[in-house]
Simulated scan of single mutants.
Amino acid sequence: MVHQLAAVDQRAKIGKNVTVEPFTTIAGDVEIGEGTWIGSNVTIMDGARIGKNCRIFPGTVISAIPQDLKFDGEETQVIIGDRTTVRECVTINRGTKALGYTKIGEDCLIMATVHIAHDCVLGDHVIIVNGSALAGHVEVGDYTVMGGLSAVHQFGKIGKHVMISGGTLVRKDIPPYVKVAREPMNYAGINSVGLRRRGFTNDKIFEIQKIYRAVYQMKMNVSQASSYIEKEMLPTAERDEILEFIRNSPRGIVKGYGTGKE
């Protein structure tokens, strides 16, 4: 299944039923899981670990060295989970000694011309739309959707089930289950449509709305809102996840629209 015009190093570990189209280059320290399709003119460099049944489209470069002046040639990786699709001309840089790898989860869709920098970690079912860019050390939670032409500041943290409007400049951390939009970026409500699609009940969505009403609409700062939520609302997995994210956000969370407070 490897085209005769592809250049595949004999040391590369290629699984069963992998297709490699012409003019693709695969280095020696590479592992590709069974059933994966690699399009033409793809470059897969040392350190790539690609899962099963993935699709890698033409022009993509995976596991090039980081665009980081501190990188000193250390052996690091790019890890891509099963069933993930990487569209045309995406660049995914491998990690540095800070973390050791860049990781993309399972069932993700990375659309054309996206850049994912060193030491980023993406969860499962993440969608990143065309032309977006993640700087180094960014974390993205499961089921997050990042609109086209968006950009995330280095060390940024994005929670699960987040919806980011196209063209957004993400300078602050985004807690789970919310939408963000506008410039500068602001909280724009709960990602209720996405949550319903993923099986969240109306009661659970209302609970999440109530939590964020305390954070963004009750004229409290973040510390006061966190204390209020902990004292006044029953503990649930979602409540505790939101509180943990807020309290462990070194950059601070996104502001509320029109409030001027963080």
Rank of each mutant, 00 (worst) to 15 (best):
Tyr212Phe: 14
Gly105Asn: 04
Ile62Thr: 13
Pro176Gln: 07
Thr24Asp: 03
Leu5Ile: 07
Val20Asn: 06
Pro58Gln: 05
Val8Ser: 01
Glu31His: 01
Gln217Asp: 05
Tyr216Met: 06
Asp240Arg: 12
Thr168Ser: 15
Leu69Arg: 10
Thr24Tyr: 04
Ser223Glu: 09
Glu88Thr: 09
Asp240Thr: 12
Phe206Gly: 00
Gly95Trp: 02
Asn93Ile: 08
Lys157Leu: 09
Gly59Ile: 04
Pro250Asp: 05
Val138Asp: 03
Thr144Phe: 15
Lys210His: 15
Val222Phe: 06
Ile110Ser: 09
Lys16Asn: 06
Arg251Tyr: 08
Val114Ala: 05
Ser150Asn: 02
Leu234Phe: 00
Gly167Phe: 00
Phe155Thr: 06
Val138Ile: 04
Lys103Leu: 13
Lys70Thr: 15
Gly39Gln: 08
Gly47Tyr: 09
Glu75Phe: 11
Arg11Asn: 09
Met220Arg: 14
Glu238Val: 09
Leu122Pro: 12
Ile32Gly: 04
Ile26Trp: 04
Glu88Trp: 08
Val254Asp: 02
Pro235Trp: 13
Gly123Cys: 11
Ile104Met: 10
Gly15Gln: 07
Thr168Arg: 10
Ala188Phe: 12
Met45Asn: 15
Thr91Gln: 02
Ile164Arg: 07
Ser192Glu: 10
Thr91Lys: 02
Gly123Lys: 14
Gly95Asn: 05
Arg171Trp: 00
Val18Ser: 05
Ala112Ile: 03
Phe57Tyr: 15
Ile62Ser: 11
Pro66Cys: 13
Glu238Ala: 15
Asp68Asn: 15
Lys157Ile: 13
Gly123Glu: 14
Val42Ala: 06
Thr60Gln: 09
Asp240Ile: 09
Gly123Asp: 14
Lys103Thr: 15
Ile116Cys: 08
Ile92Trp: 12
Glu106Arg: 14
Met163Ala: 15
Lys255Ser: 08
Ile205Ser: 04
Ala64Ile: 13
Phe71Val: 11
Ser165Val: 00
Ile246Gly: 08
Val170Pro: 05
